[in-house]
Write a protein that binds this DNA or RNA. Structure first.
Length: 552
RNA sequence: GCGCCCAUAGCUCAACUGGAUAGAGUGUUGGACUACGAAUCCAAAGGUUGCAGGUUCGAAUCCUGCUGGGCGCGCCA
């Protein structure tokens, strides 16, 4: 918002220098404009002088001085400083902030969302857990990150689709069928040896029991029976997954089945396309993709010597299909243990004639659970993992989602169940929600005093002159930059940090300043400030998929 | 053996992608409710950013080499 105005001031000054021959015309001007972390360094600062100093063969300070003298800033800034070794600091007028607040109030909080997307189509594929068992907590983190990222991009003007890829054609599904089949035989009183590499969880026994209890007909031959069990188990488990996700507040636009790639002939298209372009070849009775043509990685098998296609083949086909559906940017969210897979898929994307930057892979690091201060083990193999369902039941949706988004996604997350469950000040979720409830409470009181929201539009914002009031306004306006940053960097966790910071300032303000007072004009101005604060908090929580309770 | 990620206050983590004196929360200590919700606030204390070099006006951030941890390296998915 205001950042753009600052950028214009800088650019105009540079253009002026070019015109006067101080800066060569062909020099690219690409300054960074940032919000200084140090208070006293103004509202914005730029490093432009450091960039131009070598060109002018002068010191950064001198360069900054030359530029500042040419800056036409009176409309928005009280002053511009050259500070430190050559930073240029901009001090925006209070009146500008007050005006921005007024504008945002008039247009509504949605005016703060950037329009970086311009309607471009983005496909976010996430969770995509195989339907061979319930979702565990790691899937939950991926679900939260994917869902919130989708919200952010969508709010930032992208046309977003959420997709879940169901891996229903691979060997794991066969293993699932065999697992259920053997458990079923056990129930029938047969002596079976249940192998180590089958699914160990109790839920397999539940599936077998369901088949028996519902008296479901099973095909007679073993092979047919296993195939039936595979389909049955997969569907039941998938239903459970969808239910878990819904309770977590995550909804998908599409569920895309791997088997559909075969049915629609996308697999064959992919193979012939790669072959025609010369990126695939035969060797040792198998059919290979030339990964090495694009990335520092070894060539990979597409069709095994036994004629079976590999998972990689499906995946290339799937991504080809995504591009065919006109998505310009593909976001894949994977567990970080799949990071070694990135080069080959990027290579495949390039073989399909796309830019490798068209595919963004976001890795989700593992979650370790903490209970009673001790780590909770979670091994999928042993069947003793903690499911998303268990976490949801224990701490609730709001805390679960918020906690999953309190860390950068590619960093380990330590999830403290006891903390997430606490309804006290230590719990960051409540810290944010409490601010919202507090503001709502003030508005209820204001209503009792005969002030309704309608009167806010007459508020005189020049009365918001306290330093912390101006700071709160800045915080509100910065919501725009935060969302923009999230959308650019694909980092949803920035919103949680922003909200915690924003409401921290509010709580502090609240303890110092009385909002409802005898001075009606001042009261109205402060109420408008709180109104917008409330809107931003609500909007931010909404993007996170966390509720904003009016009372708690 | 090769490759990727991580290492920041006692603990859990930030730092707007190379910016100024590295910040929060928690924990510890001491304070604030007979006016809008104390699920809150204020203050003190806490650091050689794992180690050693390098790049430059400037490094937690980039490069090289170590130390310690996680994960990959299949005609598995």
């Amino acid at each position: 918002m205001i950042k753009r105005t600052i950028a214009t001031i800088i650019r105009d000054a540079c253009e002026g220098c070019k015109k006067d021959g101080i800066i060569p015309v062909n020099v690219e001007i690409n300054p960074i404009i940032e919000i200084p972390k140090e208070e006293g360094h103004g509202d914005y600062s730029t490093n432009i002088a450091f960039l131009l100093a070598p060109v002018l063969k002068k010191s950064p300070q001198e360069t900054a001085g030359i530029l500042v003298r040419r800056m036409d800033f009176n409309a928005v800034c009280d002053k511009i400083d050259v500070a430190g070794k050559g930073f240029i600091n901009f001090y925006v007028k209070d009146a500008i902030w007050q005006k921005l607040l007024q504008d945002v109030y008039a247009e509504g909080v949605d005016a703060l969302f950037p329009e970086t997307g311009q309607g471009k189509k983005v496909l976010i594929e996430f969770v995509s857990a195989n339907p061979t068992g319930p979702l565990h907590i790691g899937h939950g983190r991926g679900a939260a990150v994917g869902d919130v990222l989708a919200n952010i991009l969508s709010k930032a003007g992208y046309n977003v689709t959420r997709e879940y890829y169901i891996n229903d054609a691979g060997r794991q599904i066969k293993t699932l069928g065999r697992s259920t089949f053997l458990r079923w035989q056990e129930l029938k009183g047969m002596q079976v040896s249940y192998e180590q590499d089958l699914y160990q969880g109790e839920y397999i026994k539940d599936l077998a029991r369901e088949i028996v209890e519902k008296n479901i007909d099973i095909p007679s031959g073993e092979e047919d029976a296993i195939a039936f069990m595979a389909r049955f188990s997969g569907e039941v488990i998938m239903d459970g997954i969808v239910k878990d996700l819904e309770d977590f507040g995550v909804y998908f636009d599409n569920y895309y089945k791997e088997s559909a790639l075969y049915e629609r002939g996308v697999i064959d298209d992919t193979l012939s396309l790669l072959k025609d372009k010369g990126y695939a070849y035969e060797k040792d009775g198998a059919f290979w993709f030339k990964t090495s043509a694009f990335e520092k990685d070894e060539d990979r098998v597409l069709i095994k010597s036994d004629g079976e296609k590999t998972y990689f083949t499906s995946d290339i086909a799937y991504h080809l299909d995504k591009f065919r559906r006109a998505y310009g940017t593909l976001v894949d969210i994977w567990g970080s243990d799949h990071h070694g897979y990135i080069p080959r898929l990027k290579a495949a994307i390039q073989a399909l004639g796309k830019d490798k930057e068209d595919l963004k892979v976001i890795l989700i690091q593992f979650v370790s659970l903490l209970k009673d201060g001790k780590p909770v083990g979670m091994s999928t193999r042993a069947g003793a993992f903690t499911t998303l369902r268990e976490v949801l039941d224990e701490v609730g949706r709001d805390a679960a989602r918020f906690f999953f988004l309190m860390r950068k996604s590619d960093a380990h997350l330590e999830f403290d169940l006891d903390l997430a469950k606490k309804t006290s000040n230590e719990n960051p979720v409540y810290y944010v929600q409490y601010a919202y409830a507090r503001i709502m409470s003030i508005f209820r009181n204001a209503g009792d005093e005969g002030i309704d929201a309608d009167q806010l539009k007459n508020a005189d914002l020049r009365l918001l002159a306290q330093e912390d009031e101006i700071n709160l306004i800045k915080g509100i306006i910065h919501f725009h930059d935060v969302i923009e940053g999230c959308a650019r960097s694909f980092e949803p966790h920035r919103i949680t940090f922003y909200l915690l910071d924003l409401v921290g300032n509010f709580h502090s303000y609240y303890n110092k300043t009385r909002v409802l007072g005898d001075d009606r004009e001042l009261t109205l101005a402060r109420l408008l400030l709180l109104y917008m604060l409330r809107e931003v908090i609500r909007s931010g929580l909404n993007v996170l998929g966390v509720s904003a309770p009016e009372k708690m």
